[in-house]
Amino acid sequence: MPAFSLEPEQRTWCAELRELAARRLRPLADRGTPGRVNRPLVAELGALGLTARLFTSGALGLCLMRESLARECAEAETALALQGLGAHPVHTHGSAAQRDRWLPGVGEGRLVAAFALSEPGAGSDAAALQLAALADGAQGWTLTGEKCWISNAPEADFYTVFARTTPGAGARGITAFLVPADRPGLTGTPLDMLSPHPIGALRFDGVPVTRADVLGEVGGGFRVAMDTLRLFRPSVGAFAVGMAQAALDATLAHTAGRDAFGGKLADLQSVAHQVAEMSLRTEAARLMVYAAASAYDTGGPDDPEVPRRSAAAKLLATETAQFVVDTAVQLHGAAALRRGHPLEHLYREVRAPRIYEGASEVQRSIIAKELYRGLRERAEGAGR
């Protein structure tokens, strides 16, 4: 499928998602408590069949869902995405027993998942994590340490946890574990953040895990994490595009209807040019997101083009959304800063995606690394 064009049925599906978000998800989101898991909203996402589609729609389908929901209800989009982020490692790398135990509940919206990678001293440098998995007999380990900035913590029902099983081994010494929230020694606290979705810290005080809890292979946790992020990075871009489009839609309506200086705001060339720039950047970001998702669906996570395209899509889209939302607030004026205004909400929501799942600076490093890798490979090929 061309990366720049959607099929008519895909456009229809996106319109249906936006309608569902406005009619059925927005009211549930409005009744939720900021910073807390909204279980009725999660349950409705399951009842609508959207959570189950996280695992069957491919990268482009995931992007279309996230963009469409974000245009109407960022809280619903985020709740859906966090379920996918936490449960995707189970879907892709879990054993049959792990998948059978946890994925039906996620798909139905009964269970809440979380992805526990970041730590107080290991954010962008994921390979530097220090949560220790200490051997405890032939079949198990105990987890000791902390995780921080974990979405859905401490209210999730289970966590995909990345811990160091081999000290000093860098990325090769990390193992992924599926850890139920009721394991002894696991505690957590919510964090009061600018972004309105739930984020918390976790403390592991000798939490027991066994080989039955391992996701993938012992020592293969970094691969589990990167497989997940390569899929979800373009879809973070889709989330950003959805927020940018929502801000653009609001700005078009506002500037076309607001009286100013003897006419409408839209009649001012300075305003019209800013709106045009907002539209241009949003569409460019959307096309890059679709291209990255299509590359993933065609070649899978091991396609050499995927890391660069995923990084570029997330980088461009999240930076674009920040610009578009900020410009929308400027064109709306003081009213957009009032608590409860849709743009005030977007302004708080749009900042975090430039940091999580790899900050913008990390994405630039990935892009440069892949460009130079390609240059070396071409030079080596020419020298043979």
Score class of each variant (00 low, 15 high):
residue 7 E to P: 01
residue 7 E to F: 04
residue 9 E to F: 07
residue 16 E to P: 13
residue 20 L to H: 09
residue 20 L to A: 12
residue 23 R to E: 15
residue 27 P to L: 06
residue 28 L to R: 00
residue 33 T to R: 12
residue 42 V to H: 04
residue 43 A to S: 13
residue 47 A to W: 08
residue 49 G to Y: 06
residue 49 G to C: 07
residue 50 L to F: 08
residue 53 R to E: 11
residue 70 A to C: 06
residue 73 C to S: 08
residue 77 E to W: 01
residue 79 A to Y: 03
residue 79 A to I: 03
residue 87 A to G: 05
residue 95 S to N: 04
residue 99 R to W: 05
residue 99 R to M: 03
residue 108 E to D: 15
residue 119 E to P: 03
residue 126 A to D: 09
residue 133 A to Y: 01
residue 136 D to L: 09
residue 139 Q to M: 12
residue 140 G to T: 14
residue 144 T to E: 12
residue 145 G to R: 01
residue 151 S to N: 05
residue 168 G to E: 08
residue 170 G to H: 08
residue 178 L to E: 01
residue 183 R to T: 04
residue 184 P to T: 07
residue 186 L to D: 11
residue 192 D to R: 06
residue 192 D to C: 09
residue 192 D to P: 03
residue 197 H to I: 11
residue 200 G to I: 01
residue 201 A to M: 14
residue 205 D to G: 07
residue 222 F to K: 00
residue 226 M to K: 13
residue 233 R to W: 14
residue 238 A to W: 01
residue 239 F to R: 02
residue 247 A to C: 06
residue 254 H to I: 00
residue 260 A to K: 12
residue 263 G to S: 12
residue 275 V to F: 10
residue 286 R to T: 06
residue 288 M to D: 13
residue 295 A to G: 07
residue 300 G to H: 11
residue 303 D to G: 07
residue 305 E to L: 11
residue 308 R to Q: 13
residue 312 A to V: 10
residue 320 T to E: 03
residue 320 T to R: 02
residue 328 A to R: 00
residue 337 L to A: 08
residue 338 R to D: 14
residue 351 R to M: 10
residue 352 A to Q: 09
residue 355 I to D: 14
residue 355 I to R: 14
residue 362 V to C: 10
residue 363 Q to G: 08
residue 364 R to K: 13
residue 366 I to F: 10
residue 369 K to D: 12
residue 369 K to C: 10
residue 379 A to Q: 15
